[in-house]
């Protein structure tokens, strides 16, 4: 599989890219810090992704870079079978309320610009006759909740966008895989107290890779979160107003 990967430097993206490298997939890394990308490329190369793992600059805050980055990845890989997006940022509701500038950035990165990036990725994949677009949204987008109002809204928008994309292009050979992680122990969440069912990046990555291979449209990871979110979605407003989660 030839994969363009935005977000392979850290967290769940690092774990997923490593699994792909170890089974011999070809990777092209997209990201904002060229020297750091090179370090991840070296790691993935030793793990089996081939002698050279190409890197292409792409910053989620700069939409002008998206289409050229996808084109560059297609050229470097000699085609394209999948695009993975694990890039994103997180901030607590308190931080976002205290800093409107940060809130603006987060909504741009996690929603608006991720959508624009996916538009470019979709074009690239369709030009190859189809492929897989795997994007990390979040369970935070499932219900308006006090601790994740703004972040959750951005992810909710992203989830809906991905759903629509699937409806429109599935017949064209585009497999959209929407990953909804629950709490996963990465540096993104290291300042937070892990709840029950907190997951490890490696286990999530294995689950996501299976979903990519099978074309599963929606993945809750770790899987108990599917049930947890079903319950939370069913809670009446009167209760959501009272509880802290």
């Amino acid at each position: 599989m030839r994969v363009a990967f935005l977000g392979a430097t850290k967290g769940m993206g690092r774990a997923l890219a490593r699994l792909m490298a170890e089974r011999g997939d070809s990777l092209c890394l997209l990201g904002r810090n060229p020297t750091d990308l090179q370090r991840s490329a070296a790691d993935l190369s030793v793990r089996g992704a081939g002698a050279v793992v190409p890197c292409v600059p792409c910053d989620l805050e700069k939409p002008g870079m998206f289409a050229p980055a996808i084109d560059a990845a297609r050229a470097a890989l000699g085609g394209l079978d999948a695009v993975d997006v694990t890039a994103g940022i997180f901030a607590t509701q308190d931080e976002l309320e205290a800093d409107p500038g940060l809130a603006e950035r987060l909504v741009h990165i996690d929603f608006g610009n991720t959508v624009l990036f996916c538009e470019a990725a979709k074009k690239g994949l369709l030009a190859e006759g189809g492929g897989t677009l795997c994007v990390f949204s979040s369970v935070a987008g499932e219900r308006g909740r006090k601790p994740v109002i703004i972040y959750g809204a951005a992810k909710a928008g992203l989830t809906r966008y991905l759903e629509g994309l699937d409806h429109k292009h599935h017949a064209d050979g585009l497999n959209v895989v929407t990953v909804k992680p629950g709490f996963v122990k990465t540096s993104m969440t290291s300042a937070l107290e892990p709840p029950p069912f907190a997951g490890e990046p490696d286990a999530v990555a294995r689950q996501v890779l299976r979903a990519i291979d099978r074309g599963t449209p929606v993945v809750y990871a770790p899987s108990p979160w599917r049930l947890v979110m079903a319950v939370i979605r069913a809670l009446p407003r009167a209760i959501m107003r009272r509880v802290g989660f």
């Binding site: 850290k10 991840s40 070296a42």
Partner: peptide
């Protein structure tokens, strides 16, 4: 423990 990349071999 998260700083675990292989840089060259």
């Amino acid at each position: 423990r998260l700083a675990d990349r292989i840089l060259s071999f």
